[in-house]
Design a protein around this nucleic acid. Structure first.
Lengths: 148, 148
DNA sequence: TATTGTTATACTCTATAACTATA
DNA sequence: TATAGTTATAGAGTATAACAATA
């Protein structure tokens, strides 16, 4: 069976069930993100870029760091988004080697729109819960995320 | 993504905060899945295939349906996994056109192992909560997933 | 010399269209 | 004719290695 049995930490049963629920929930959430992205010809990564640059500008390398990607990957990614007016490159005023990336006009508008679409797309799922349960769930998730 | 407040759409505030928490939680979960997958040279899609075929065999087309992918995409995906012994193709005994896919020996072993790795990878996150809160969170998530 | 970004290259993932074998 | 799967092709996402410009 698992070669992980000998040196592994034992995982409690209730943890296992929670992890299953987290994974399933994540797939549902990601499916919504993917579908909305596809409707606008955007990959999940491009959606993340729009979200990250929503309220700031970053150097190429910093953006790559936020996404956990190599710098070389960013070049093509930003190229394609820039061609559509979603992103803009500008020279960094301090470091002559660096290039800043920020949302273009089309990117700012689209980002606002996407936020609403995601909320509407997931509300049938979140709407299953009572308002009180929604608040409890929100609190529990935020508690987990805060202690990361 | 942070809540914007400038949406013209009627999404309740508590729903918006829940959606933010769900998206953040999903990125954390997916990051863990991606990292574990990468350590074994497996894409997220291949991880999903292993999970789906854990307790059943499916026809190529059915598997594509579960993943939301085109049948043509499955061919290459299964090809590569089959070469590594993770999956196995067999002829469907009923329909001469169909091909069944199931876990290979290496695939079954790896799937067991991955489950443990994921649990250990996420336990620092889930471990933030008390056992009672973990049960509450599990119940709430399962409630949402059931009514999908 | 070290760092930032780009380019060249290669592989995976994905869809569309055309093809085959079977129903 | 319709369906199941594969193949050919093309584009996007990704990393590694080599490179140019700047620090």
């Amino acid at each position: 069976m698992a070669p992980s049995g000998s040196d592994a930490q034992p995982i409690a049963v209730d943890q296992g069930r929670l992890i299953d629920a987290l994974v399933q929930t994540s797939f549902v959430t990601m499916a919504a993100l993917n579908r909305i992205g596809a409707e606008h010809d955007l990959s999940l990564t491009q959606l993340r870029v729009l979200g990250i640059l929503r309220d700031r500008r970053l150097k190429m390398g910093e953006l790559a760091g936020h996404l956990g990607l190599d710098r070389s990957t960013m070049s093509g990614l930003v190229d394609r988004a820039e061609r559509r007016g979603l992103l803009q490159r500008t020279l960094n005023p301090v470091d002559g080697r660096a290039v800043d990336v920020l949302l273009g006009t089309a990117g700012s508008e689209l980002t606002e729109q996407l936020q609403g679409e995601l909320a509407r797309s997931l509300s049938p799922v979140t709407g299953v819960l009572t308002p009180a349960d929604r608040r409890r769930l929100t609190t529990l998730l935020e508690q987990m995320l805060a202690h990361r």
